[in-house]
């Protein structure tokens, strides 16, 4: 991508300090860019640190978290910005959040209309009841939320409609960066496709979208680029076409993840991911990897598009172990 990135994350690490002096490295050295008009899908299994990464970008980490690195949104470093700035100028205005569980994100005692109107009043300059009502209805339409359901309470909505209500809220402030945290969880395939296409439309309108998901089909449908996260590290960052099509993923984990899809071979990656509190010194995937060798005892550097000592080559069929692989 030659575009100027809107969000530029460099060496972002998040660690939690637990009682008893334990440390859990949830995110380690994540680096990526997201440009306007581009969607980056961050994929990985639950517990790999992708949701924590999103919380770090929004400044919503708990008090026992420590961060390192940078996350520049324009000229602002999201990791060092104070809560006041984040609350008043960033969340909603520069980053719109499409949440993971919309049912929990909405206040149960208020109607969807009052949610949206309140957000309109907070984030935009719209004054007056009628104008606000109109703006709220426009926001709902943009998220394909049926106007007939605006006066319902969150518990009266199906999962899909609640998701759209939450999307409508995220779109109100017209933030340049959208952050979607598992926006399709629990939705059926048609609704996933529609939600994703809707988000894609906002990308094509010039928004930047960072979508965190474990749904590979949704990622394939929407993403320009894909970042694969494993045990807190980004192990592969590739163009979506190359990743999902030909030549396919290069990291053995990404390859295994794709192969596990029911439309492919439907075989799981053997074993379980490692504990984030007890990561091996070397490649975290090595114990589950059929390509692993002694070289994997060292942490693989991120080179080109992949962090692996033995990536599946883009063109040749077998990787050859070279002495360089064993350097620390």
């Amino acid at each position: 991508m030659t575009l100027v990135p809107l969000l530029s994350v460099r060496d972002l690490s998040v660690r939690f300090l637990l009682p008893g002096g334990r440390r859990v490295d949830v995110v380690s050295d994540a680096s990526f860019d997201v440009a306007p008009g581009e969607c980056l899908a961050l994929i990985g299994e639950s517990g790999c640190g992708k949701s924590v990464l999103a919380s770090a970008l929004l400044g919503l980490l708990p008090a026992n978290a420590r961060t390192a690195g940078h996350a520049h949104l324009g000229d602002l470093d999201l990791l060092t910005a104070d809560e006041r700035t984040l609350a008043r100028a960033v969340r909603g205005r520069r980053i719109g959040l499409v949440p993971q569980s919309p049912a929990a994100h909405l206040t149960p005692v208020r109607t969807i209309r009052s949610h949206i109107e309140e957000t309109v009043a907070r984030l935009t300059g719209v004054r007056g009841r009628a104008a606000r009502r109109k703006a709220a209805e426009q926001a709902s339409l943009r998220a394909e939320f049926p106007l007939g359901h605006l006066d319902r309470h969150p518990h009266e909505l199906s999962g899909g409609l609640a998701q759209r209500a939450a999307t409508a809220l995220a779109l109100v402030g017209d933030a340049p960066l959208l952050l979607a945290d598992e926006p399709t969880t629990g939705l059926d395939r048609d609704l996933v496709d529609r939600t994703v296409d809707e988000l894609r439309r906002h990308v094509d309108d010039g928004h930047a979208l960072l979508m965190i998901t474990h749904d590979l089909a949704a990622a394939e449908r929407i993403a320009d680029r894909v970042a694969v996260m494993y045990a807190g590290r980004i192990v592969e960052l590739a163009d979506a076409d190359a990743f999902f099509g030909s030549p396919g993923p290069r990291h053995p984990y990404s390859r295994g993840l794709l192969e596990a899809l029911p439309e492919r071979s439907f075989t799981p990656v053997p074993g379980l991911p490692p504990e984030l509190g007890n990561l091996p010194a070397g490649c975290a995937f090595a114990p589950r990897c059929d390509r692993a060798t002694d070289a994997c005892a060292a942490l693989p550097p991120f080179e080109n598009t992949v962090a692996c000592h033995h990536p599946v080559p883009a063109d040749t069929s077998h990787a050859i172990r070279t002495p360089e692989d064993t350097r620390a």
């Binding site: 690490s13 980490l61 008090a63 420590r66 961060t67 390192a68 690195g69 990791l79 060092t80 809560e83």
Partner: peptide
Amino acid sequence: MTTDVDTDRKPAWRAHGTARRS
């Protein structure tokens, strides 16, 4: 902001959201 000692790498760890606890 606190910085704690880390063995082999340079990251400067930052704390978050500690204001309310005291």
